[in-house]
Nucleic acid binder design. Structure first.
Lengths: 351, 351
DNA sequence: GGGAAAATTGTAACCGGTACCAATTTGAAA
DNA sequence: TTTCAAATTGGTACCGGTTACAATTTTCCC
């Protein structure tokens, strides 16, 4: 069933049918009604590829991320997908594992008649290739990553401010030995959050011992391992600020394993506010970077770029980080355990 | 830069260039070399939409799921994406929120020249529409869901067996009052897992009290709430088998909030083995349904269907559920806490 | 050297829409 | 009634590939 079939069935030309399909003016209401009813009756749908070829618009966006399995991304992807769907766009998902080869392969393949624009979520990508893309004027936007000195749209939180808020909160709880799990130095987020940590400490007149700063890689595993290192320090830090929730949850696990109570023995604060952070069993205090909104915003920037082309100046959107207070910082205590006596009794009854 | 440009630059015809692009035989090695070098030099990439229109193959798959934010799906999506990418396919992500309208809208739009096939991950979809799709012979496969009586490819675990293994394990720990958080009865997984629970109890000669079976909706929140209900029962169940990890984690939170130790006061077992279940802070014993492999398998079934058409009989792949033993079932104890004395000392030094 | 088969290459008609331009019809003013 | 602009509709050349078929060249064997 093609547009020509509809033309034949209705007795009109393909041009008129096309006009009806696209809601153009200069079509007699009666004609429109007749054609629409035939379209309806036959369940006709315009062919995507044909339309894309003719208009050179696919209404598909490409979303590149390192790994959807990392709990940060599903929420971003959801924000992107919802915003895209609301404006008639579909989303192609690409996992690159932070592998430059994969990134480039995806990009070059997607650029040619595949997608109308690309969203790079915390993508690595060397300067030269990104520069090349920008010069090509292919619509793209960076999310959760900055690239200074290049005229490109981007969305990210104010990382320095977010980190400062987290650390200041810990300080307000009376903590002085605050350790920090940072990320690889080639990630702009890591650098900025580390800076925020330093500034907050300095402004409070606290000095930072260098063994308090350990480098993770944003995985839960690395958070666990690095926290283990921190917990072996003497004197032990009384609080940890981890640069993402993943690592904070790992640190939580390390504390648990050592029998340290959170927040009584050690306070922990994360960054991101992934969904899990709010779980009753976790209750992680963290800095929200409004991941979902970041996804939405990335789409709206991208669509502006697609529709307005390079008549627009590149804009850098900065989201305001907000501290989400839960249990792990010390604002709420750990629930008391049911006394052992009670358990003994119950156990006896069981037998 | 089109194929005609390459033809002009090399002096050959578009047909020959096309043959080179597609690696067809009957091209002189020298010709191939020359054309390839020109393609290389100009960074030519064939236009996706044009190729799709000509061949009526898009090399895109559609993946429908309720919500990528649900921790079950990212891993599935990753399995799908990896398997697809390995065979030259891209994946379009669709969040339907289990909304039948959205599902149908996505499907009808994607079917026309958009994707070569669809993967329905635990999709609701009424019988009639699914039947219609099957009759249309559009390539599709069901993942994490069965549809009995319809000739359609599908992948799923053996839910009954998985549930039995989970419950039997709890029984082997000496539990007798084992409660169960099930899912909505319109979900085939829920029905089957509930059946497995019943069978395991029955085979062990344990009777099931009806208040031990509570209905959740697979969200963490519902796991939390239903566990709270279970914990208020007298006598309190000594173990809970939740039908997915999400709800099990919710139950963990409820236990924590009431000061109940897991596994000493209450054992908890989940289903799925999402990534989080292995976190040190959670350590959830669960039944793995090999989510990643499920995604891979779904793709391989779908591609077979796409390539072989209806010459293939529909196949139902059943994955073997394996019990992943961690802490929450009672095989490992909760680490002892560092004595309070020690904390006091530390606190004094702090001031 | 002749002739058939195989190898190589070219021509042009699709695929299913869109959109420019022209043709025709309609409506209103003159 | 004539005239002209606006409204409506049709014809057809694209978009950028693929591929059936034809044409040409080369290879091989007797």
């Amino acid at each position: 069933m093609t547009i020509r079939d509809i033309a034949r069935l209705t007795g009109y030309s393909v041009a008129t049918v096309s006009r009806v399909l696209n809601g153009y003016p200069h079509v007699h209401p009666q004609t429109r009604a007749r054609i629409l009813s035939v379209i309806q009756k036959n369940g006709f749908q315009p062919h995507h590829a044909a339309r894309a070829l003719a208009t050179s618009r696919t209404y598909i966006l490409g979303l590149l991320m390192s790994d959807i399995t990392n709990p940060f991304y599903p929420e971003l992807a959801r924000g992107v997908e919802d915003a895209a769907a609301a404006r008639g766009y579909r989303v192609i998902l690409c996992n690159t594992d932070g592998d430059l080869q994969k990134e480039r392969a995806y990009i070059t393949s997607l650029m040619r008649g595949h997608v109308d624009g690309l969203i790079f979520a915390s993508v690595r990508l060397d300067d030269s290739f990104l520069q090349y893309l920008v010069r090509q004027r292919f619509p793209l936007v960076l999310a959760n990553r900055r690239f200074y000195g290049l005229p490109v749209d981007s969305v990210a939180v104010d990382n320095v401010l977010g980190a400062k808020r987290a650390v200041s909160h810990l300080i307000s709880h009376g903590h002085q030995r605050i350790a920090h799990i940072t990320g690889p130095s080639y990630v702009s987020n890591a650098v900025e959050r580390l800076q925020g940590y330093r500034e907050a400490m300095e402004e409070a007149g606290l000095k930072v011992r260098k063994e308090w700063i350990v480098v993770g890689d944003f995985t839960r595993r690395s958070g666990y391992e690095k926290a283990m290192v921190l917990f072996s320090l003497k004197p032990r830090p009384t609080a940890i600020f981890a640069e993402n929730d993943n690592m904070a949850v790992g640190a939580l696990g390390a504390a648990f394993e050592l029998g340290l109570r959170v927040p009584e023995d050690v306070a922990i604060v994360g960054f991101d506010d992934i969904d899990l952070a709010g779980a009753e069993a976790i209750q992680l205090t963290t800095v929200s970077q409004h991941i979902y909104e970041m996804g939405e915003k990335a789409v709206s920037l991208l669509l502006q770029r697609i529709e307005a082309g390079d008549r627009r100046d590149p804009t850098q959107v900065t989201l305001d980080p907000t501290l989400i207070i839960r249990r792990s910082c010390g604002c709420q205590r750990t629930p008391a355990r049911i006394p052992t006596r009670y358990h003994k009794r119950r156990a006896q009854r069981d037998v």
